[in-house]
Nucleic acid binder design. Structure first.
Lengths: 154, 154
DNA sequence: CACCACCTGAGACTCAATCTCATCTGGTAT
DNA sequence: ATACCAGATGAGATTGAGTCTCAGGTGGTG
């Protein structure tokens, strides 16, 4: 799905919810869809400030939970900083490997994990909305660097 | 492993790192090990304040990342509030089902997921330190209540 | 085209988390 | 024992992400 189609779909979703379409909300959605990776709420505020598009911090912060509720955004916790979000682009939910040292985020998909989660939810009669798996550790390069550092220190 | 053994092991870990053993650090570790479930940094500060044990907020906040680094604590994100932590008690790492409505946290273990993660890490030459899987949605009771509400609203 | 429930923005506010810096101390070397 | 100092501490100031307030604005329906 390309950006235009996605934007149309999202706008449609908003229109058919009980929400009003306002220039601010359109601007926020448009901006979100042009951000390639993860972003924080404040990144959004800053990005909107820099262009002529108008949407205040309060409005941005108010819209984010709504977009999560609608399944358009998903919260991604990096664990070190404040909240980050990403656009849900189905199909293919992905999980994250996060390097503790350099902060690199490697995305991967794993059907086996998806299936296992569905089974667990059935066992517990839990209705899954979203899930997020984050594996923290060291990426290939940082393993090398960390090991070198450790050797020279001892 | 009971609490005394765990405490001894943790103290040993601290002693053999480059860290100094201070009364404050001992107090914090002892307190952490007596908390049954998840806790926030501020819960810890409050708990220490209430007893005669002494450790300032700054000291608590300074020690938490160290304990995570040592693998003694793990960060658990509830996503709605500030950071929460839990003691790593091996074997049997568990994942979390989190109810968006009432906040209940259901823990579960799933060897299939653990295995899948190990495989993915091997594929990416990633050295795993920790992982956390959080599934958000509705618990059994809240599904019922949310559905009832939805019906009466329409 | 009038109406009003919903939306917005500026800025005050909250409070978890971090920083500062003067003082203290664990643990090693002497 | 004891002197020494890198590392640790605490009280309080500071930061900053996120929330709240409230007066005024507006989308969209009847």
């Amino acid at each position: 799905m390309n950006r235009e189609e996605l934007e149309a779909e999202v706008m449609d979703l908003l229109q058919h919810s009980e929400l009003r379409m306002t220039p601010q909300r359109r601007a926020i959605v448009r901006r979100i869809l042009t951000i390639p990776g993860h972003f924080s709420a404040d990144d959004l505020v800053t990005a909107l400030d820099q262009t002529q598009e108008e949407a205040s911090r309060a409005t941005v912060y108010r819209l984010i939970p709504v977009l999560i509720e609608l399944g358009i955004l998903r919260e991604v916790e990096h664990g070190y900083d404040h909240s980050h979000y990403e656009v849900v682009r189905d199909p293919g939910h992905h999980e994250h490997l996060i390097c503790q040292r350099c902060g690199e985020v490697i995305e991967f998909v794993c059907p086996a994990i998806e299936e296992a989660i569905v089974e667990v939810c059935q066992e517990h009669n839990f209705r899954q909305y979203q899930h997020g798996l984050e594996v923290t550790g060291l990426c290939e390069q940082c393993q090398q660097e960390a090991d070198d550092q450790h050797l020279s220190a001892s």
